[in-house]
């Protein structure tokens, strides 16, 4: 049953989202190729402005703007499509069909969560991929990989950092989607106006998560981690020797600016954030589930 529900969720949401993804991918690819060529030409025969004149400069500005605009549009469209789909099919006119399908409320919620989270993660992945494309021609990616390898060889827990970051992206995307679902499910019980109620519910949940995050992180960093950060040698500021080394080989910048203890602190922070978002996700799930099971009001 769940797989069928997910199938129909993807079918309905992909109608809009895939086009936006495609548009962003095309703009990102064109921009990456264009900027790559500019850099190549500049390296071969002077500055980028010398080789193409004003027209190329203008095109570069427009492409730069189009890239960021399309990125913003893609992120917004994903959120809007996921939210509106949930509101229409769980509490709107189409809810009469959704809630009379032989599926439990948990299955309905889970199907929407899987779809919403995957679109959200996919949009983040697409943005990262586009940044990777940009860095390919400029050599930034190669420098970064080289720096990371060297740090790993020196014993920095870089692999752990990347894993935790990826995990945090997945967890926060899932919990963030659930936050919207919980707000939409709760909203009609707060105000008669369904949209107004959902916005109010979202604001309440957002403030609650901010307060909870602040308290949790304050508590977490008041102990051993804070001591570690304050320990001699843990300071991330570059000393004179590091600055000299950086001037000699700029590709070392990534490695020099992060010490092993910096990574430990960062991993601790990433781990804490991940645990926090898991907790938020559980609370949002329980709230949405309760509202849909006990307080559903398709009046």
């Amino acid at each position: 049953m769940l797989s069928k529900l997910v199938k129909y969720e993807f079918k309905a949401t992909s109608r809009t989202i895939l086009w936006v993804f495609l548009a962003f991918a095309v703009i990102a690819a064109v921009s990456a190729i264009f900027f790559g060529n500019l850099v190549t030409q500049a390296e071969a025969g002077g500055t980028a402005t010398d080789t193409g004149g004003t027209a190329k400069g203008l095109a570069a500005v427009l492409l730069f703007f189009a890239y960021f605009a399309s990125m913003a549009v893609m992120m917004i469209v994903v959120v809007v499509v996921v939210i509106s789909r949930f509101a229409r099919t769980m509490l709107g006119r189409q809810a009469y069909l959704t809630h009379t399908l032989p599926a439990s409320r948990e299955q309905l919620l889970l199907a929407k969560l899987i779809t919403g989270s995957i679109w959200s993660i996919a949009s983040t992945g697409l943005v990262l991929l586009s940044l990777f494309l940009f860095s390919l021609r400029e050599g930034g990616w190669g420098d970064m990989v080289k720096g990371l390898r060297e740090m790993a060889a020196e014993g920095s827990p870089i692999g752990q950092s990347i894993t935790l970051l990826a995990l945090l992206i997945v967890v926060s995307a899932t919990a963030g989607t659930l936050m919207f679902y919980a707000a939409i499910s709760w909203g009609p019980n707060l105000l008669k106006n369904r949209v107004g109620g959902s916005i109010l519910a979202f604001i309440i949940l957002y403030i609650a998560t901010q307060i909870a995050s602040f308290i949790a992180l304050l508590g977490a960093f008041s102990g051993t981690a804070m001591d570690a950060l304050a320990a001699p040698g843990a300071d991330s500021a570059m000393d004179a020797a590091a600055q000299e080394e950086l001037l000699a080989d700029p590709s070392q910048s990534f490695a020099i600016s992060f010490s092993v203890s910096d990574f430990d602190s960062m991993n601790y922070l990433l781990g804490m954030q991940t645990i926090l978002w898991v907790c938020f996700g559980v609370v949002f799930w329980l709230l949405a589930r309760y509202m849909l099971r006990r307080k559903l009001n398709l009046a």
Binding site: A95, Y96, H99, T100, R293, R294, K295, L296, N297, L298, A299
Partner: peptide
């Protein structure tokens, strides 16, 4: 309508 919705679990 309320009665029918209750039978369909659209209301509690």
């Amino acid at each position: 309508t309320t009665l029918i919705k209750l039978a369909n679990e659209l209301l509690v």
